[in-house]
Design a protein around this nucleic acid. Structure first.
Length: 153
DNA sequence: GCCAACGTTGGC
DNA sequence: GCCAACGTTGGC
């Protein structure tokens, strides 16, 4: 099993929205960055755990946990000509973008804020700290355990 | 295949 | 809303 971090803008789709969704499950679509795409397509497996991170908001933070319950599979939004994520170069035979289904697991009582992550010398290697713009990134088991520990304090 | 221009992300 | 960082595009 692997660990990941997924960013979302809570104004558009929050962890609370995921919790309230049917079965607490949603398709994680609209990722349009190749590095992020490669993590989804080549790395993600059913059963992997993911941190949900709220970005572009008052207090950017890791706010809880979800789990991958389906996929990866071709992101359906790339074929929707009327949608914002349409990609005219993508075909069913050669899809360009990929999705997984994620299911709600947990909301942290104490979210791990970006401020705390940046200030913590023990979290030197977390990708969130280094490459701020990536929307899908791997998390090591050590980082996962450490961050869960902070969130439960 | 280089690189300048451009667009997007996301913290502040 | 500003702007730095950085990914993508397209001319050459």
């Amino acid at each position: 099993m692997a660990y990941w971090l997924l960013k979302t803008e809570p104004d558009a789709f929050s962890l609370a929205d995921l919790k309230a969704a049917p079965n607490g499950t949603t398709v994680w679509d609209g990722v349009r960055n190749y590095q992020a795409r490669n993590f989804i397509r080549d790395g993600m497996k059913v059963g992997d755990k993911v941190f949900i991170y709220h970005s572009s908001c008052k207090v950017p933070a890791i706010v809880g946990v979800a789990e991958i319950v389906n996929g990866p599979y071709a992101d359906p939004s790339q074929f929707d000509a009327s949608g914002d994520y349409y990609d005219p170069k993508a075909t069913a035979e050669a899809p360009r973008w990929f999705s997984v289904d994620v299911q709600y697991r947990e909301t942290f009582n104490k979210p791990v804020t970006l401020q705390a992550i940046k200030a913590d010398p023990a979290i030197e290697e977390l990708a969130l700290k280094k490459s701020g713009r990536l929307s899908v990134m791997p998390v090591t088991e050590q980082e996962w355990q450490y961050l869960c520990g902070i969130a439960s304090k």
